[in-house]
Simulated assay, not measured.
Amino acid sequence: MTAFTTSADGTRIAYDVRGEGPPVILVAGAMQFRAFDPVTSAMAGLLSARGFTVINFDRRGRGESARAPSFTLLNTLEDLHALTEVAGGPVTLVGNSSGGAISLAAAAAGLPVSAMVLFEVPLGVEGGADGKQNLDGLRERIAGTSPDATVEYFMKDMPTEWLEGARNSPGWPVMTAMGPSLEADFEALAWTQSAPRTELWKSITVPTLALVGEQTLPIMPPAADSIAAHLLHARRESIPAANHSWEPEVMAARIAAFLSE
Rank of each mutant, 00 (worst) to 15 (best):
P159N: 12
R235F: 01
W246T: 09
S181I: 05
P248C: 11
G124M: 05
V151N: 03
P222Y: 01
D148H: 05
I142M: 06
P180G: 05
A143H: 05
F52S: 12
T192L: 06
G95D: 00
F57P: 00
A107R: 02
A30R: 00
D148N: 14
L138V: 12
M251T: 13
L259Y: 07
L47I: 09
E249Y: 09
S146T: 07
M220F: 12
F154H: 12
G131E: 10
F186W: 10
T84W: 03
A242H: 09
D225T: 07
A87P: 11
A42C: 09
P173M: 04
K202H: 15
E126K: 08
L83G: 04
I255R: 10
K202S: 15
V212K: 14
T92L: 00
G131C: 10
D136R: 13
S226Q: 12
M178N: 05
S48K: 03
P180S: 12
A30H: 02
T40W: 07
A253W: 00
G61R: 02
L211A: 05
I102C: 02
G179I: 06
L111I: 01
D185N: 15
R18K: 08
M175P: 07
P240D: 05
P240I: 06
A229E: 12
S238G: 13
P218Y: 11
A195G: 00
H233W: 09
G179V: 12
G137A: 05
T160F: 05
A14G: 02
G21V: 06
M116E: 04
A242P: 09
S238K: 15
G88Q: 09
A109P: 01
G89A: 03
A82N: 01
M43A: 13
A115Y: 11
D136M: 13
V250I: 14
Q215I: 12
L231S: 13
M43D: 06
W201Q: 10
P218K: 08
A8Q: 10
R34A: 02
A115L: 02
A82W: 02
E120F: 06
F36E: 06
P38N: 04
T192M: 09
G110V: 11
V17S: 13
R235V: 01
G29P: 14
A108S: 15
A177C: 09
V94G: 04
D185R: 12
L46K: 15
V54I: 03
L232T: 14
V206Y: 08
G63A: 06
R67V: 14
R50Y: 04
S226K: 01
D185G: 00
P112T: 10
T40H: 11
R60Q: 03
L163G: 09
E261K: 10
M155S: 08
T72L: 00
I239K: 14
V151K: 05
G10I: 08
D136L: 13
H244F: 00
V125Q: 12
K132T: 13
Q193D: 11
K202D: 09
W191Q: 12
L83A: 03
A195Q: 15
G110Q: 10
T92S: 02
G171S: 14
F4V: 14
I102A: 03
A35I: 08
N96C: 01
V86K: 15
T150D: 07
A8Y: 07
P22L: 07
E261L: 13
R12F: 00
E249Q: 11
S65L: 00
G127V: 04
M175A: 11
R50K: 13
I239T: 14
R50C: 06
F57D: 03
H230T: 15
V206T: 13
A224L: 08
R167H: 10
N134W: 07
